[in-house]
Design a protein around this nucleic acid. Structure first.
Lengths: 211, 211
DNA sequence: AATTCCATCTATTGAGCTATAGAAAAATCG
DNA sequence: CGATTTTTCTATAGCTCAATAGATGGAATT
């Protein structure tokens, strides 16, 4: 047998033609029933193939979860980091952060939902990795808020950590209601940003009158 | 056979001596691993009894979930309704609502967590019932906010629905971080209330600044 | 046309889990 | 103590599910 041919020509599971569809089906099913509540049969049903055929695309159900979670956070972190680094006021950057944080909910809601609710069921190693990533994102929000406090844009007595948790909680909850509610996400993002900004603003604050 | 004796002397599962402990163990395990991720064996392990013995206390795993969820919401709704009916400003009532909403997290965090994350796995009937309850609670928040807008306490352009979702999202997320974060819930409740109130409040108009 | 590769299928194994039945042990009560 | 009731145990049935092995058919390649 030709070992070289095998290793050079055989593609990884993630590069197989229907791989994106398979992962999307997994995302849908995991989002709907939760990781443990979902069966590989459920995923196969969505795709119209047999349960065993899935294992051509991933080596275990847990691997499938990992792929879904990874796609759920893809770009997230880098986008946030870029926004935080801009030469703008903390207020503006936080507004952008909130809008950016909500945007993936528009085009891949299932992936986000799975990432938020099911990542706890990942195997140790990848859970740690994703946890680290997650904390990094929180950090970005918190740092911008802290900076905003220092610069006098936000209340001096504000607890940056709690404000971060509040904002992220508010945003992440959107993945739970965005299906049923009629409101579109973009509008929600704008309203949420305004809520947060004025919520953290200095008490006898004056609206920022530009120009 | 003596039917009367059976029905009069035999207690319901919920009245058996250790029933509260059994439900608490279930709450702990469900909170930690999720309903489908948890096994009845896990629950038995916590209690130091055999798996089959659990069925003396509940007739199915789903029933156990239902009991946990019910205890998770116990009192919630009535407390909120009472607060909403008080003869106080919308601002004050909303502050109280937020504090009241977070308080169960102090004494029965696992139950709340299970209610929030696992109620979707309840059987149709009880899921509906709890869903109705949940919508009722949202309604209370939303009504107070709407009233606050009408009375001029909050911004006229505020979307009451979105504000409700934001506040509840912010509060409910606390069940996810309260374990790891050092902050105590009472403090968080105060800060959250302030964030929400000033976030929805009318901003002073420009001329007032000069006085 | 023959060969190789890709995608899916059939068939099955083996593990783990819920739930039941009935015995045993422990507690309670007359 | 003896009887009754409550609680827990042993044993196991029956099912579902993830995962593997190997076959099949079609597409691409030479």
């Amino acid at each position: 047998m030709n070992v070289v041919a095998l290793t050079t020509t055989r593609r990884k599971a993630s590069q197989r033609r229907r791989a994106p569809q398979i992962i999307e089906a997994a995302a849908r099913v995991f989002a709907e029933r939760g990781f443990h509540g979902a069966t590989t049969q459920d995923i196969a049903n969505v795709l119209g193939i047999k349960q065993a055929s899935l294992y051509y695309y991933f080596s275990s159900k847990e691997t499938a979860l990992e792929l879904v979670c990874l796609k759920g956070v893809e770009g997230f972190f880098d986008a946030a980091k870029a926004i935080a680094a801009r030469p703008e006021s903390a207020t503006n950057r936080l507004t952008l952060l909130i809008k950016s944080h909500l945007s993936p909910l528009v085009d891949r809601p299932d992936f986000v939902r799975v990432f938020l609710n099911e990542r706890q069921h990942l195997p140790r190693e990848s859970r740690r990795r994703i946890g680290r990533w997650s904390r990094g994102l929180e950090r970005i929000f918190e740092d911008v808020i802290t900076e905003g406090i220092k610069k006098g844009e936000f209340r001096a007595d504000l607890d940056a950590r709690l404000a971060t948790l509040a904002i992220l909680g508010m945003c992440n909850a959107a993945s739970n209601w965005h299906r049923k509610e009629s409101t579109d996400i973009t509008r929600a993002a704008a309203e949420f940003a305004q809520l947060a900004i004025s919520g953290m603003g200095k008490r006898p604050t004056v609206p920022r009158r530009r120009r």
